[in-house]
Amino acid sequence: MGKLLYSVAMSLDGFIAGPGGDMSWLAEHLAPNPVIDELIGEVGALLVGNRTFRGSDPYEGMEGEGEAFGGGWSGPEFVLTHNPPATPVPGVTFVTGFDEAVALAREAARDKYVNVLGADIARQCVEADVLDEVLVSVAPVMLGDGVRLFDRQGGAPVPLERLSQSEMPHPTTIWLRVVR
């Protein structure tokens, strides 16, 4: 079954989205990144939080708007939500239970990654001890406010082991494994 990987772009001060979930800040940092480009082929399914699914798109007004990785990836998407839409969305399965969403995404991914998208769903994965890896691309900007990479008030430390790190000319990208 697929490993769960939280992949995300983050500002230097630790935010993955601006105030209100705004992702427009990321548009200017969407230059090609060989690590991310390689990852796309290793993703078998997406596990997406509701706010991320319904939220701001960094590709707004650009080719690939509304599509995972700006249209670079297609496949099964599982959105964890308490309020599934009345009208089906092609290629998207809405799931109301966390455990069921993880199981369905892992099954769909087979031996590839389940790419976790959204801070809250990533937090839930950490708390359920099902997150396997974290891939963070650090953008050269400080947002000052917004949605944090991880927000676990009172949470216990989560030990991580660095698997790789890439540097310039692309954003610094750090790949970590959750140590169990």
Rank of each mutant, 00 (worst) to 15 (best):
L117H: 08
L47R: 02
G71Y: 06
R148Y: 07
Q124F: 00
D132E: 12
A68K: 01
L160N: 05
V147C: 12
F98D: 01
G71N: 06
G55C: 09
A156I: 02
G66S: 01
E77I: 14
A128I: 04
D145S: 15
L80K: 09
V126D: 07
L160R: 11
M142A: 11
L160Y: 12
D129V: 05
V130D: 12
D111Y: 08
N115F: 09
Q153A: 15
V158P: 03
A68F: 13
R162E: 15
A103G: 01
V136C: 08
V138H: 02
R123D: 15
D151A: 14
G61M: 13
R148Q: 13
V158D: 02
Q165T: 15
L104H: 08
V134H: 07
V141N: 04
D57S: 13
R51L: 14
P157I: 11
M168T: 14
D111I: 01
P88G: 02
N115D: 12
P76I: 09
V158F: 02
V114Y: 06
F53I: 10
E133N: 07
W73R: 00
G64N: 06
S164P: 09
N115S: 07
R110Y: 03
V134A: 11
V89S: 08
M142I: 05
R152M: 13
L117G: 03
R123P: 01
P90L: 04
V126T: 01
V92W: 09
P84K: 10
M142P: 00
G75L: 13
I121V: 15
A68G: 03
R51F: 03
D129E: 14
G55E: 01
Q165K: 11
E67P: 01
F69G: 00
G61Y: 02
T52G: 05
A105L: 02
N50I: 02
K112M: 04
D111E: 15
T81A: 10
A109T: 00
E127P: 00
E133P: 08
A119L: 02
S164D: 09
E100G: 05
G55T: 03
V48K: 05
L117A: 15
D132R: 03
G71L: 04
M142Q: 05
V89L: 08
G146K: 11
G97F: 08
A156D: 14
V136D: 07
E167I: 09
V79Q: 09
F53M: 10
D151T: 11
R162Q: 15
V114W: 06
K112D: 08
P157R: 12
P157C: 14
